[in-house]
Amino acid sequence: MSAPKFTSLTARCVVLPSVDVDTDQIIPARFLKITDKLGLGEKLFCDWRYLDDGSPNPMFILNQPEAKGAKILVAGHNFGCGSSREHAPWALVGFGFQAVISTMFADIFQGNSLKNGLIPVVIRPADHAALIGARGQSQNLQVTVDLQATTVSWPGQAPLKFPIDPFSRRCLLDGVDELGYLQQFTKQAEAYEAAHAK
């Protein structure tokens, strides 16, 4: 399995403005019984996306025609709070998302996303509101997330810098395998263990 890579993406976005969206909404616990990563995209936001009879909820954003082909999710503040389940980014990636834009992400979700090539883009509340406004004007708004430059932009908006862990950025740009990187420290780990042996 190769490490995820990401350089730049220009794509349409969908807006899910709710604040504090927890990972139980992103992927409910009953779908965590899998032993691989397959099929989670179908279950993304399951309890909001499907009605009780299993049919798509026409009111939910991902079921509207404009969601087809969207690769960027514009989410509310504190997206991904709650459990540590990596199934949450697996489900988002499984659906086709490659970036999520918010004003804040929960820590574990953010780390899990970076390990799966899903870019968590944090922008200021005013810029977030401007993006939602621009998206409201045009369903086909093309948003660009540039990891090389660490900027996000859209027509009418000059590139905005977003913060990202420099190591994670380097890993994504170069396709560095994090486990492989860690394994380079085996000698130091052995020395640590020898020094701390009881």
């Binding site: 459990s83 780390g111 390990k115 780990a189 263990e193």
Partner: peptide, 22 residues
């Protein structure tokens, strides 16, 4: 602290974890 499944793999394989200081 809680970790994701990728990190579970890292710890199983190396007993170490890459972490930014909170």
């Amino acid at each position: 602290f809680g970790i994701g499944t990728s990190e579970v793999g890292h710890v199983l394989a190396t007993q170490c974890l890459l972490q930014r200081k909170p």
